[in-house]
């Protein structure tokens, strides 16, 4: 821990005075926070507190919704995310996303992982194969699936599908992976294994994970941010947030008094 402090982690995502409105409703208000590189940051809070909205603000998936308006700015790697000249394709290549329900495409296993490669790189089939293998190895699927890469991705189990989605995200070598409740559709054993994977992946990636499961946040994350009604209530080292939160609201939520 002291080592972490002395090296002073680099900031991967900086959110400044950020507000987001769905039409009239203010979903996020005056959010200021910094997310460190190569750490797992958990965003927790009761349903409707804006945690998913915040996550989707980082790679601008909220753009798909009509009548969304933002104020303030988010910086990924010190480059602004909002503005007329932002290259969304480049942003989303840098910031991968894993969704709540595993959503592999109705294509083969190989094509799922190669999907982003085809979009962003002009690689030869051999290079693509290598990249696909490496990504599947990283998520621990290579051994079980190496002989059936041509198989239909939707025939995999829920856990395998979610791993495949993670492999699909990391295949393009993003800096950041956003995970929106990635285990909520999985059973406890699968959840445990995905959590192990998340801890393993943080050596290479900055991970932001939204979860409604507090013990999951405690298990996988280095930092935790607690949101309530669109506001950041408290952010700090996970250990501190869960043992000695400085705000009363955080403590009430953590100890299960509400939420």
């Amino acid at each position: 821990m002291s080592q972490d402090d002395s090296v002073r982690m680099k900031t991967a995502i900086r959110i400044e005075n950020f507000n987001l409105y769905y039409d009239q409703f203010r979903a996020l208000s005056d959010v200021n926070l910094e997310i460190c590189e190569r750490r797992v940051t958990a965003v927790i809070g009761p349903s409707g507190c804006g945690k998913s909205t915040l996550l989707r603000a980082i790679n601008r998936m909220n753009d798909l919704i009509e009548k969304v308006r933002v104020e303030g700015q988010i910086f990924v790697d010190e480059a602004p995310v909002y503005g007329d000249h932002v290259d969304l394709v480049a942003l989303r290549r840098k910031v991968g996303m894993v969704f709540q329900r595993p959503n592999p495409f109705p294509l083969s296993i190989f094509e799922n992982v190669a999907f982003g490669l085809r979009l962003h790189f002009h690689s030869s089939p051999a290079e693509r194969m290598e990249r696909v293998q490496k990504s599947l190895e990283e998520v621990g699927l290579w051994e079980e699936l190496r002989d059936r890469l041509g198989g239909f991705a939707l025939n995999l189990s829920g856990e395998q599908q979610q791993r495949l989605c993670i492999a699909r995200a990391i295949a393009v070598r993003p800096d950041i992976i956003l995970m929106d409740e990635p285990c909520s559709a999985l059973d406890p054993v699968a959840t445990q294994r995905i959590e192990e994977l998340i801890r393993f992946l943080k050596k290479d990636y900055t991970i932001v994970i939204v979860t409604h499961n507090m013990s999951q946040a405690a298990r996988v994350s280095d930092e935790t941010a607690y949101f309530y009604l669109g506001k950041l209530i408290e952010m700090g080292a996970t250990q501190k947030i869960f043992t000695a939160p400085s705000k009363k609201e955080t403590e009430d939520y953590i100890t299960g008094k509400f939420g």
């Binding site: 790679n59 998936m61 798909l64 969304l88 394709v89 480049a90 942003l91 989303r92 290549r93 991968g96 996303m97 969704f99 329900r101 959503n103 592999p104 495409f105 109705p106 999907f115 982003g116 085809r118 979009l119 962003h120 989605c165 699909r168 995200a169 393009v172």
Partner: peptide, 22 residues
Amino acid sequence: PKSYREGALALGATRWEMIRRV
């Protein structure tokens, strides 16, 4: 499903790429 579209767009596909490939 919407999740296919979101998955493709989140990977950095343009709208046309999403339509063609997914």
